[in-house]
């Protein structure tokens, strides 16, 4: 579905280096990383807003240089900014931008707005941040995209809607032909829903594989520090010690070889990010 090979992009002082990954259809991909890691740059590259200095991006087998229109027709976008015209109503915004999409369905947009509790006659500029995201999400869904790209979409949702939002995403990918890329800081949601994870840090791609690989490759090990230190150094990503013991992110191998006194568990995405970011400091 999405094939990114050796993509690099320099933007002022920031440099996104050598991103390579393949997200199959039917996957929800979590894109995580600290602020300034390059998440938005990568999304802009996937959306064709930026052109890569090096490397190639193919979406559903198509490339931007020759099939920009067809690619955009297949992408639904929700970015963490106001994409719609503030002085137009939600309905007018839908009509205004919907006319460019081959599969835009006005009734479906209205239905989603209704389900999300939004009045179609309201002006976009008068909505709260969460409502704006809901409106953009309704529009993104109503032109039947094959790929949804969502940047910081969940941050402004209330807990009720957030769970509804993830249900909709699950329904959306259920037929196995569509994919979602979700950039967020709320990693707990990704732990539950993501099938694929991309972790960026200071423009570097640290991890980009499916969640099964993620869960089988890393372990959080807690216990006495000297027992953790008995593990081969190259397997310890980072270890944090305190008065009561230590906790470390380690690269797991099939043999295990952990001291029986150590507590071993799969890491959450948040723990993974935490230890990786500490390692660099």
């Amino acid at each position: 579905m999405i094939e990114v090979k050796g993509v690099s992009k320099k933007l002022g002082g920031f440099y996104l280096r050598n991103c390579t990954f393949t997200i199959p259809a039917g996957y929800i991909c979590g894109l995580v990383g600290p602020n300034g890691a390059g998440k938005t740059t990568l999304l802009h590259l996937l959306l064709g807003l930026y052109q890569a200095d090096e490397g190639t991006i193919a979406i559903d087998g198509m490339v931007y240089s020759s099939q920009e229109k067809q690619i955009h027709d297949e992408i639904g976008t929700v970015l963490g900014e106001d994409l719609f015209e503030p002085f137009l109503t939600l309905e007018q915004n839908g009509d205004y931008y919907g006319k460019y999409y081959s599969c835009y369905n006005r009734e479906q947009m209205e239905e989603y707005l209704k389900v999300f509790g939004l009045e179609k006659k309201r002006k976009f500029g008068m909505l709260s941040k969460g409502e704006k995201v809901k409106c953009l999400f309704a529009f993104a869904l109503s032109h039947a995209p094959k790929l949804l790209i969502l940047d910081e979409a969940t941050g402004s949702f209330d807990p009720d809607f957030r769970s509804r939002f993830f249900e909709i995403l699950k329904e959306y990918i259920a037929d196995g032909t569509k994919s979602v890329i979700l950039a967020t800081h709320l990693t707990e949601d990704l732990d539950r829903i993501a099938d694929y994870l991309i972790y960026l840090e200071e423009g570097n791609q640290i991890f980009a594989e499916d969640m099964e690989t993620f869960r089988s490759r890393y372990r959080i090990v807690a216990g006495e520090s000297y027992k953790i230190k008995l593990l081969p150094k190259e397997r310890i990503v980072h270890m944090e010690e305190n008065n009561y013991g230590a906790k470390a992110l380690v690269i797991h191998n099939r043999q295990g070889n952990y001291d029986s006194a150590l507590q071993v568990a799969s890491p959450s995405i948040e723990e993974f990010m935490y230890f990786f970011s500490k390692r660099r400091k």
Partner: peptide, 14 residues
């Protein structure tokens, strides 16, 4: 145009 217009399906000529 606004960012949304760059996301709408149009080729460069359009």
């Amino acid at each position: 145009p606004g960012k949304m217009m760059y996301l709408c399906p149009m080729d460069r000529k359009e």
